[in-house]
């Protein structure tokens, strides 16, 4: 394994641990307003400083990690389910089934995804669940295409003919033999997808139509920071860094998985 991959794993692991142990790690309640300490610079009592309502920024960042990662994982989870299922069905059955699914993918790809998300969020209320679902529902096409391509080549392999000759059903062949063997490139795409989903969530929250305050997410902390940019540099620096490092971590991990799985 190369050093960059290990670095990626460390980053990803670090933020997952922070998200899991948020209640233990956060020194303050992230929603606790403290009028006496508005916009104080980082110090020993507030290591990341406080925000414009006097809330402890470190605590908010730690809880924000929970939201950002949750959105990343669940959104990509939804995308993977849709993508793997549709890709596998299209690849295995071929013919008109493949035609319909592929045309549907083409149509989905024609929409500028981000504006589609903006439009849908404008219609629905911007709750965390809605955001996860809408990100998931608009980002599965790449996974589906990869899955389909893998299955197209796998299904001509002898071991799949062998399965059919011992009487295995289509469902069994797809779920037990085709999908697991096709997962390597899909896994890379999924890992990179998590980075993408975290970015989309941050962007939405930054624009004010993502995760709604007072629930902290890195995006909306950054957005609040924008308003006080001159007075509180730490309000933009820390969430910005967190987003940057996390996305970098997932990208490095994705590359590492690609190198390892696709070589063999």
């Amino acid at each position: 394994m190369n050093k960059l991959t290990i670095f990626g794993i460390c980053i990803v692991g670090f933020f997952i641990i922070i998200a899991i142990f948020a209640p233990i790690l956060a020194p303050y309640n992230p929603g606790q307003i403290d009028i006496e300490n508005i916009l104080t610079a980082p110090s020993s009592s507030h290591i990341f400083g406080t925000d414009s309502l006097g809330r402890d920024l470190f605590s908010r960042m730690v809880y924000g990690a929970r939201i950002s990662l949750m959105v990343g994982f669940i959104a990509v989870g939804i995308a993977s389910l849709i993508g793997i299922a549709l890709g596998a069905i299209a690849g295995y059955y071929g013919k008109w089934v493949d035609g319909i699914i592929m045309r549907f993918i083409d149509i989905m790809l024609c929409f500028p995804t981000f504006f589609l998300i903006l439009a849908v969020i404008a219609l629905l209320e911007p709750s965390i669940i809605n955001i996860m679902v809408i990100i998931g529902a608009t980002s599965w096409m790449g996974i589906a295409r990869l899955m389909r391509a893998e299955i197209l080549s796998l299904k001509e392999r002898d071991f799949i003919y062998a399965e059919r000759s011992i009487g295995a059903s289509d469902l069994r062949i797809i779920i037990r033999h085709l999908i697991p063997n096709a997962m390597a490139p899909v896994l890379v795409s999924i890992t990179l997808g998590i980075a993408g989903a975290i970015l989309v969530e941050s962007s939405l929250s930054f624009l004010g139509i993502g995760v709604q305050p007072p629930t902290p997410s890195w995006g909306n902390i950054l957005s609040e920071g924008k308003a006080v940019m001159g007075a509180g540099w730490w309000m933009m620096l820390f969430p910005g860094m967190a987003i940057f490092i996390t996305v970098l971590g997932y990208n490095l991990l994705g590359e590492g998985i690609r190198e390892r799985l696709l070589k063999s």
Partner: peptide, 19 residues
């Protein structure tokens, strides 16, 4: 019916699920 009719393939590397 497949139970009675079986096949052995050429490439032993391709005919078993590698996992």
């Amino acid at each position: 019916t497949r139970k009675s009719l079986q096949i052995i393939f050429q490439d032993p590397y391709a005919s078993l699920d590698p996992r």
